[in-house]
């Protein structure tokens, strides 16, 4: 694994970030990325992706929906459990 390409680095990126690759493979990826502005740019944007989408979709439950659901839960919990 001495000559990692951009394509190979991208393929292994999540495994790399989760730390499940061998030390040797991690090092060869580091060596490639360290000298590759394209990979540096790509990895930065890859790592930004989850947080961007997380913040954009963090919906709060509306008050009236919450009250309806609380009522539904109570209607269940007041039912005798069949066993």
């Amino acid at each position: 694994m001495s000559d990692v390409t951009c394509a190979r680095g991208v393929e292994l990126l999540m495994d790399y970030l989760e730390g499940v690759l061998s030390a040797g493979v991690m090092e060869s990826i580091d060596r490639h990325v360290g000298g590759c502005p394209r990979c540096l740019a790509f990895i930065a944007s890859y790592r930004e992706t989850p947080a961007l989408l997380r913040d954009a979709t963090a919906e709060e439950i509306p008050g009236d929906t919450k009250r309806r659901l609380d009522g539904f839960v109570r209607s269940l919990s007041e039912r005798p459990r069949e066993s």
Binding site: T5, C6, A7, R8, V10, P37, R38, C39, L40, A41, F42, A44, S45, E48, L52, D55, A56
Partner: peptide, 23 residues
């Protein structure tokens, strides 16, 4: 992502980081 035949990113660092600070 797209790569050329040598396995290199086809896009430049500038185009690859367009989404920086998108929010």
């Amino acid at each position: 992502p797209r790569f050329d035949e040598s396995g290199r990113h086809e896009d430049t660092p500038e185009t690859l980081s367009r989404m920086s600070h998108l929010d």
